[in-house]
Measured scan of single mutants.
Amino acid sequence: MEVRTIKVFTTVDNINLHTQVVDMSMTYGQQFGPTYLDGADVTKIKPHNSHEGKTFYVLPNDDTLRVEAFEYYHTTDPSFLGRYMSALNHTKKWKYPQVNGLTSIKWADNNCYLATALLTLQQIELKFNPPALQDAYYRARAGEAANFCALILAYCNKTVGELGDVRETMSYLFQHANLDSCKRVLNVVCKTCGQQQTTLKGVEAVMYMGTLSYEQFKKGVQIPCTCGKQATKYLVQQESPFVMMSAPPAQYELKHGTFTCASEYTGNYQCGHYKHITSKETLYCIDGALLTKSSEYKGPITDVFYKENSYTTTIK
């Protein structure tokens, strides 16, 4: 009895394709271990004539594949690729409408935090270190965002349907971005203890939790000093293409032309909904596939993004 075979390709990165001759009487799992086709788990399936010449994702289970996976995804987590594939199996079914010149995501599976993050990423200057993220990001900007969303979920250790947080998501993504040249110098002034300067680099240099107003941050924000008295913390120097200011959701007025974009969060910790506000020729609110415009805006804002380049204080 002759062994019926077909020729397929296996890959971990969709760049390096490895030619395989597979036995049609055995499952993919018996031949390769966990195997995925377009995100779908085909591990328990036997090869079919229609699979001839198709590319299958496999887990990096030998040295060659491990090197290829690390170079593309910059992670050695053995569960990463499987999590990416199972997320992709959902995100490829989502709709990605162009809204006001940006790629958004039609609401499904509690994905409003991903839509808000995706919209924000198209408006701030950011370059990702893992080629996987950078490639998928370019495709997302062009309207094909399924891979990018699935990668975000995998890097953030999230599953489809789980509630997510924009600030946490951005923080994970910033860790995989090139923020080497970003720098922030802060000064804390206390009447009792004097003053202390701190220099922050990388992710810490672009994120701040405690106030939404970048102007206020430049002037000074009140913080408790270690001595128990009130101290003032203010920005001395900022070198970065953008800054992200966050605070627990509270009524906040966004003035046209003073910011790049913002995240609105309605609801409580267990259950809520994100919308995205962007400042173009007027203010726009993007909620999944829905767009509304207004000249002014007041609502429960939790993150505001500002364009920056270089700032030095005039406070002496």
Rank of each mutant, 00 (worst) to 15 (best):
T313W: 12
Q123G: 04
F174S: 02
Y138I: 14
R139A: 13
S25D: 15
T169Q: 03
L153M: 08
S246P: 01
D41C: 11
V236M: 11
K201R: 15
L151G: 01
D287Q: 03
M1L: 08
E264N: 08
D38S: 10
K92E: 07
F128V: 07
F32C: 13
V160G: 02
F174I: 03
C285Y: 07
E2R: 10
T226R: 14
I152S: 04
T116M: 06
L235D: 02
L37C: 11
G29F: 10
I277K: 04
P249D: 06
L133M: 05
F9P: 06
T266Q: 01
T312E: 10
K219E: 00
D77P: 03
K229G: 15
Q175M: 08
A154G: 03
G257V: 08
N111R: 01
S25R: 11
Y234S: 07
G161D: 00
P78W: 11
T169P: 04
D180R: 07
Q238A: 01
T232N: 03
R4V: 13
M85K: 07
N268Y: 03
Y252P: 00
T226F: 06
M209T: 15
I301M: 03
V166H: 09
Y138V: 13
S181T: 13
I315C: 15
L121P: 07
K127I: 09
T302Q: 04
T10E: 03
S25V: 09
T43S: 13
T198C: 08
C156G: 08
V160S: 02
Q123A: 05
A140R: 07
V236N: 06
L283K: 02
H48V: 10
K293V: 07
M170I: 07
S181V: 07
H18N: 10
T266A: 00
A115E: 09
F242Q: 00
L254V: 08
G143W: 01
P248Y: 15
D180S: 12
E296D: 15
L102Q: 06
V12Q: 11
S50V: 10
S50I: 11
K298P: 06
D287G: 01
K229I: 08
S104W: 08
C156H: 00
T19F: 09
I286C: 00
Y36I: 04
A40G: 12
G53E: 13
D165T: 02
N147R: 08
T76L: 14
T76N: 07
R83T: 02
Y138G: 12
S104T: 14
A87Q: 13
C271K: 14
T19I: 11
Q123T: 03
A231K: 03
H273F: 06
V58F: 07
K95L: 13
K307L: 12
F259S: 01
I223E: 11
L59T: 12
E71N: 09
V3H: 12
E162G: 02
V236G: 01
I6S: 08
Q237G: 03
E168I: 15
F128W: 12
V22C: 14
M26Q: 15
T312I: 14
A154L: 04
F148T: 00
N49A: 14
K106E: 15
Q31K: 09
Y96T: 08
V221W: 00
E239Y: 05
K233L: 15
M24T: 13
R167C: 02
T64W: 10
V243Y: 02
Q238V: 01
P97C: 01
F32A: 02
Y36A: 03
T282S: 12
A205L: 02
C190Y: 06
N268G: 09
N111T: 01
A40T: 11
N111H: 00
I45P: 10
C285G: 05
K280S: 12
Y234F: 05
I152K: 00
Y234V: 07
P131T: 05
G29A: 07
H74N: 13
Q222Y: 02
K293E: 12
Y113I: 04
M26D: 09
W107L: 05
P60V: 10
D287I: 06
Q222M: 08
T76W: 10
K219M: 13
D180A: 06
N187I: 05
D109T: 08
D62R: 07
E308L: 08
T10W: 12
K54F: 13
G228P: 01
K219W: 04
N268S: 14
V243A: 05
A132G: 07
G257Q: 09
F148C: 01
L37Y: 13
V42K: 04
T232Q: 07
Q31W: 13
G202L: 06
A154H: 00
T120Y: 02
W107N: 07
G164K: 02
P47Y: 02
L17E: 10
Y96K: 01
Q175L: 06
I45R: 13
N129Y: 07
T91V: 07
S246W: 00
D23I: 12
V236T: 03
V203T: 09
A247T: 03
E253C: 06
F217P: 02
F80D: 06
Q270V: 15
S295K: 15
Y96Q: 03
I6Q: 11
K219Q: 13
E168M: 15
C271I: 14
V12M: 04
K201T: 13
G101Y: 03
T10Q: 13
L291Y: 15
Y137F: 14
G220V: 03
N111K: 06
N110P: 05
I105G: 06
G194Q: 01
A289D: 15
V166R: 00
L291K: 01
D287T: 00
K93Q: 12
E239K: 09
L179D: 08
S213K: 00
M170W: 02
R141A: 09
F305H: 02
F174E: 01
Y137Q: 02
G257K: 01
A132C: 04
Y137E: 01
Q123H: 10
A150M: 00
G53T: 09
N147Q: 14
A132D: 03
T266P: 01
E215W: 02
Q230N: 08
T76E: 10
T159E: 14
Q195C: 15
L291C: 12
K255P: 02
L163F: 13
G161K: 08
T199W: 06
F305E: 01
H276G: 08
Y208K: 07
T292K: 15
G161C: 01
G202M: 06
N14T: 14
T169F: 10
S263P: 05
A231Q: 08
L153S: 13
F56W: 02
K233R: 13
T103H: 12
Q237I: 07
G82L: 14
P47N: 01
S240A: 02
K95N: 08
A154M: 04
Q237V: 09
E2A: 12
K275F: 00
E296N: 14
Y252L: 05
Q216N: 09
F128Y: 06
Q238S: 04
L235I: 03
A177N: 03
A205Q: 00
T76P: 14
A247L: 00
F128D: 05
A40Q: 13
M26I: 13
S86H: 08
Y269S: 15
T292D: 12
Y172S: 13
K54N: 12
P130K: 00
E253H: 11
A177S: 09
K219G: 03
T55Q: 11
D109M: 03
T258G: 09
R4Q: 12
I277T: 00
K183G: 05
G220W: 00
D109S: 03
F56N: 00
Q222F: 09
L81Q: 05
G267F: 15
G33P: 09
K229F: 08
Y252M: 10
I15M: 12
R66F: 13
R167M: 07
Q216I: 06
S240Q: 02
T103D: 08
T75W: 02
